[in-house]
Design a protein around this nucleic acid. Sequence first.
DNA 1: TAATAAACATACAGACTTGACTGTTTCTTT
DNA 2: AAAGAAACAGTCAAGTCTGTATGTTTATTA
Lengths: 213, 213
Amino acid sequence: MTPATHHRTQEQRRSETRGAILDATVTALAQHGYAGTTTPLIAELAGVSRGAQAHHFPTKADLVAAAIQHVAGCRAEQLLRELGDLPSNPAERVRVALEVLWHSHRGPLFEAAMELWVAARTDTELRQALAETESDLIRGIRFYSAALFGSDPEEPRFARALDLALATIRGTALMANLAGDDPSQAEREWLRHRDHLQTLFPTTEQPSRSTAP
Amino acid sequence: MTPATHHRTQEQRRSETRGAILDATVTALAQHGYAGTTTPLIAELAGVSRGAQAHHFPTKADLVAAAIQHVAGCRAEQLLRELGDLPSNPAERVRVALEVLWHSHRGPLFEAAMELWVAARTDTELRQALAETESDLIRGIRFYSAALFGSDPEEPRFARALDLALATIRGTALMANLAGDDPSQAEREWLRHRDHLQTLFPTTEQPSRSTAP
DNA sequence: TAATAAACATACAGACTTGACTGTTTCTTT
DNA sequence: AAAGAAACAGTCAAGTCTGTATGTTTATTA
């Protein structure tokens, strides 16, 4: 795991340490919540000293602001990565696209994002820092999703269906994180929701007919 | 505002102070978030000393546990109150019922509940304390909602529609709290979702009368 | 009315977080 | 190779929260 620490460029050192700190911040947010995300914990998780953390992010606000960008970037990247293999069959494509959206709302990255959202509700600075970045991400999701579903992002029917899907996914993920102990329950609930959401997206070829009565 | 503080029963003093502390806890959760809900702040909001708070709730865990019950109780009570006047027209009834559900997911009580949910994700004790109370409340919502919609809670189609509606409402409320600055936007988004959800409930044309409970 | 117990107020000790400060190592430049 | 700059490590002081311990007021009871 020790990555050739003999001769690193300053730029390499900088970006590696910053990356470690930001990744540790995401881990801390996901595992300990926003309140539990303290600078000593982050430094420990990142494997760096408190001095290093203070050097790169003088105040905690700086660190959190950078973490917001980091989280948004990672989420967009993850979405783009999973956008790779989609079936060509329209109905199948919608189902898989919904599944990709669902999965993008699970795991540490989304948990970190949710911690930031909720914390931002009562923290003006944090909210302002989140607002622009988040709206960019939402636009990105909208754009990528259009590609995923094979639709025009501007079409009202698609926009409505996507908004409903996102709201449903967020609400389901929220409660899934709460239950915690039984993830299969949330997964089953999502499958039911997905079966319905699937029928709302305008498939260019054939309107998929559900097999269940 | 000083309510005849001359001759109060010990029971009165006790319940009034406890109530003030618990209400202050809800306010603190809604306005300052879970992390910002400190015992000194609660005491100040409640207008009592820290000693009084410590007397009634020796540890913060005790206070939070009581607050959970308090929040759940208030939410159930609020739902029951708004259940009062529902139109008899089936379609109208569904629309209003959805609106009642939506409104029950806005305001300080829901915000406090959401803070508790998110905090519970990374706090085992809190999660266990929430789990039972929350599942009771969910059951209550399910039961009350059946009355609201005029359906049988056991009917699969109704259960599915209600689950979807709740997930959608939670997801929309989550982002509405985030946006913060523009509540009308969330309201408009909700109206679009409502228009669709409305069509999912079997009571719109009362197509099937279930006989078995 | 006096005694007792509960409710309430104030003061304090320990633990923790943040931000700042000082010293050391590593890289770059000449 | 030497000087300077950046990255990094460790420590300290100020402030806050929690829990507790002690003193005071209010209500009940004898």
